[in-house]
Design a protein around this nucleic acid. Structure first.
Lengths: 152, 152
DNA sequence: TATTGTCAACGAAGACTTTCGTAGGGCAGG
DNA sequence: CCTGCCCTACGAAAGTCTTCGTTGACAATA
């Protein structure tokens, strides 16, 4: 009932976390190279961010090699849940139905999304317990990531 | 290629917006008094925040009287939509079904909430025949985020 | 061995947030 | 007219976020 184990990631931190989730454990160099595809940025910026994120506990660092390796402490799903909960508290008075409503109003929900969502709702007939495992229903959208790995 | 008309409110700004949504147009004094119920804070803090929020366009100020009157520029729903869209982009790759999933996993969804949500989904069902283009969902990073419809 | 390249660690600048003290104007009651 | 109260406007302090240049350690290579 206290503070989250990890603080809410900032925008930049989230961008880095996305990289780590996508690539898995990575070096600063790899994170930086990936970040470069989106926007120009200096290597030391990525390094500094990862150092700070380590202090905050957002990522873990393996220092056994000279070139450190970072990986996200929480999974993407855990972080998403944290962010949703946070937003729920800050802007929705805790009402998840309102949040869902706005999510639908977003117009980003394609018909496939809607179908998927409907399925989710149907499953969650049970309210008492936790949703059990966070199924990775990524069937929603084909995985079309161009993971054209840099080099390595 | 227009940026959101208003910036994403910070935590404190959101707290103030909540007051304005709840009370309707209010004076600094009224906002401050309401804020006091949650946490101790100085009058000038509320004043300063409202001044800044006016500059940012988050609120409007009626200066016709010596005691100014502030009101939120966007409705609660508009802001919620903006925040959801924002979160969708930053942490969910645009997938609203994933967001809904996490909203449900939050365990905050009471059975009434679930019922409500189910109703929503059912309604949005007939949206199925989304005429026009259904915006391909894979635009994970929308370059163009129009928030055009901020009018009521 | 000298050179070149990679890497972590700082430190600091600049922008943004949040908080509050102080100042000055207006206004009502004395 | 003076006093005290309420109001707005500043500005500054402290904290956070983001970015990047510089430095020194290491290592591979010529």
């Amino acid at each position: 009932m206290s503070k989250p184990v990890v603080p809410r990631p900032t925008d930049t931190e989230l961008a880095i976390l996305r990289v780590l989730w996508e690539r898995g454990a990575s070096t600063v160099r790899q994170v930086h190279d990936t970040l470069l595809r989106e926007r120009p940025t200096a290597y030391t910026t990525a390094l500094k961010m990862l150092q700070i994120m380590t202090e905050k506990g957002l990522v873990r660092r393996d220092e056994s090699d000279r070139t450190h390796i970072y990986h996200a402490k929480l999974t993407e799903e855990q972080t998403q849940r944290q962010l949703v909960r946070d937003l729920l508290d800050r802007a929705f008075g805790g009402s998840s139905s309102k949040l869902v409503m706005q999510a639908l109003a977003t117009r980003r929900a394609s018909s496939e999304e809607l179908t998927e969502i409907r399925k989710l709702i149907a499953q969650s007939g049970n309210t008492g317990e936790t949703q059990g495992r966070t199924e990775n229903t990524e069937a929603t959208q084909g995985k079309r990531r161009e993971v054209g790995d840099d080099r390595d």
